[in-house]
Amino acid sequence: MKVRTLLLVLFILFIAGFVALNFEQILQPTALNFGFTEVLAPMGLVLLGMLALVLVVFLAALVYYQTMHLVEMRRVTREVNEQRQLADKAEASRFTELRHYLEGELQAAATRERTLSEQLHQKLEQVQVALTQAVEQTGNGLAAAVGELEDRLERQFPPQGGDRL
């Protein structure tokens, strides 16, 4: 129990005890002046009635303000939930846009990779053809040089008999 509630309960018990101890004096009739008339009534009972009336008015005001507070809290909670839903939708939309952007970039990268791969294969084929031609030319050049050397050797040293290398 909160300290404030405990103090309120103790105060109410104190007043109830005071009324119980002095109940005979509270019920003694007294001449009461209401401004326009005079009445013979118990002064203590009138004061207790006024205290009870003030307490009822106070409790009614408290209930009214608590109700208004709860209504306002529900309205604010509903607005917060709506804003949260809007934020979630916006975030989902951003994620969707990001996914589409990344998919497009990945497709573009794959296309560039295929293009570069094809160009690399073409260059490799060209290099292979050039290398094959260079090897053939080198082989032909060597064969011609070897043939020329053989001719010179045969001229300088003619073959004897039927020997041929």
Rank of each mutant, 00 (worst) to 15 (best):
F36C: 03
E105V: 12
L62V: 07
T138G: 05
Q28A: 10
G17R: 05
G139M: 12
T138M: 12
K123N: 04
F18M: 04
G162A: 09
R74F: 14
L62M: 11
R114D: 12
P158T: 01
G17K: 02
F36M: 06
Q156W: 08
R4L: 02
K2M: 04
N22G: 04
E91R: 07
F11G: 01
A108I: 02
V71A: 14
V127W: 04
L55M: 14
A143M: 06
R4V: 03
V63S: 08
H69I: 02
L7R: 02
D163V: 12
L62C: 07
Q25I: 11
Q128C: 01
V3Q: 11
Q126H: 11
S93H: 10
V46I: 10
V3G: 05
F58P: 00
L6T: 02
M50E: 08
L40C: 10
M68Y: 08
R164C: 01
E154N: 13
L102D: 08
L47D: 03
H69C: 03
F36N: 06
P158K: 05
F14N: 05
A110Y: 03
Q126S: 06
T77L: 15
L7Q: 03
L124W: 04
I26D: 00
L120A: 11
S117W: 04
G139V: 15
L153C: 11
R114T: 13
L7V: 01
G139R: 12
L6C: 03
F157Q: 08
F157P: 01
E103I: 13
Y64M: 15
L131R: 05
Q156Y: 12
Y101C: 05
R74E: 15
G44M: 04
A108H: 06
Q122R: 05
F11L: 11
V3W: 09
A143Q: 06
L7Y: 01
L131N: 06
K2H: 06
Q126R: 08
F14T: 03
A90K: 07
E136C: 06
T30C: 06
L51G: 13
H69M: 11
A16V: 01
V80M: 10
E154M: 14
T30N: 08
F11P: 00
L21P: 00
T5I: 01
V46H: 04
I12A: 07
V71I: 15
L62R: 08
E72S: 13
R4N: 01
Q83M: 14
Q156D: 15
V46C: 04
R114W: 05
E136R: 08
